[in-house]
Design a protein around this nucleic acid. Structure first.
Length: 317
DNA sequence: CTAGGATCCTGTCAGC
DNA sequence: TGCTGACAGGATCCTA
């Protein structure tokens, strides 16, 4: 779920909530699922948040005591903040009797400014913790919830100066905005027999794309997802990098394809997919370019969406 | 070294 | 209804 634009959206949002006095000091940490938090939670108590960084899909929360929380949401992670004011009011709403469900939801909508959430879209986030809550960081002025259905994501405590040496982070390739078509083309030559879709999901080749934006970038570049990397021309590689930039820029402008203010009563699914996706999750619908029906297949074990007309396959010589 | 498949987990949905 | 298998916006580990 969370790909680069979602994580960046979370970074920007949490910046306004957590840094210095807005969040205040960390009071305590509840680790509800051991494997979701690596390190000693006591090490961050008493610290302020100094800043938030992002490396690809990894979010780094830098603290005032030279420690950092490295957070990866993987498939189903969410980060949700609410301030103390929200917590009080939400509890009041929850415990009020004789109120209809609709009224309750409206009340929560009025509290949006006290909250921020992003990551895997789900409903029912107005009352936390829920059974998917893995970690709660209690600040002086609010709470940060790390929810994760499948437990693939994690928070990991590191010394700030060790973050860039982390085995995942140090291997990350450039993001599309910093990568040239030549550079990607060069990398493709080292994986000639790999399927192009799988290659661009590899964060050590190009960083930031996940399953949605990989499909969208390939559609932009008019490249069939099943083609082998060795058949991709320099021109196509350049279009592909450009496509990655374009689709992720669009998503960033829309606040990511994911939840922004998470207690919307009309569903929390975010804007990107409905507004901008050309192929992802549009199987059976018409391609907006040519009217051909979008097809869903499996490539490298991942669900893959493409237009068979715009993205014709090319046979290897 | 590369390429492909299994794997970590829980929840949901289609089909019987 | 209940059961079953497939699948899910990620990354790593194992095998050939």
């Amino acid at each position: 779920m969370p790909e680069l634009p979602e994580v960046e959206t979370i970074r920007r949002g949490l910046k306004n909530c957590l840094i210095k006095e807005k969040g205040g000091k960390v009071l305590s940490v509840d680790v509800l699922e051991k494997k979701s938090f690596l390190g000693d939670p006591d090490d961050i108590c008493g610290a302020f948040v100094d800043g938030l960084r992002r490396y690809g899909k990894a979010l780094i929360i830098d603290l005032s005591n030279k420690k950092s929380i490295v957070c990866h949401l993987r498939m189903t992670g969410q980060l949700v903040w609410w301030d103390s004011d929200y917590a009080k009011k939400a509890f009041k709403i929850k415990s009020a009797s004789g109120v209809s469900k609709e009224e309750v939801i409206n009340e929560y909508d009025n509290l949006l400014e006290h909250t921020f959430g992003g990551g895997h879209p789900t409903d029912g986030l107005m009352i936390l913790p829920n059974k998917q809550t893995r970690v709660i960081v209690h600040f002086e002025k609010g709470e940060l919830f790390f929810n994760d259905q499948r437990k693939f994501g994690f928070m990991k405590l590191l010394s700030t100066d060790m973050v860039e040496k982390d085995s995942f982070i140090c291997k990350l390739a450039k993001e599309p905005w910093k990568m040239s078509g030549d550079e990607l083309y060069g990398k493709l030559q080292r994986h000639k027999n790999s399927v192009i879709k799988s290659i661009i999901l590899d964060q050590t080749i190009i960083c930031g794309l996940g399953n949605i934006y990989a499909d969208e970038a390939l559609h932009y570049a008019k490249i069939n997802p099943s083609r082998r990397a060795g058949t991709i021309s320099l021109e196509e590689a350049s279009r592909l990098v450009e496509g990655a930039r374009v689709v992720m820029d669009r998503s960033l402008a829309a606040g990511g394809s994911t939840i922004r203010n998470y207690v919307k009563s009309d569903g929390t699914k975010g804007d990107y997919l409905e507004l901008f996706a050309e192929v992802f999750n549009r199987q059976g619908k018409e391609c907006r370019e040519c009217g051909t029906k979008i097809v869903k297949i499996k490539v490298g074990g991942r669900g893959t969406h493409f237009c068979p007309m715009c993205q014709k396959d090319v046979k290897m010589k």
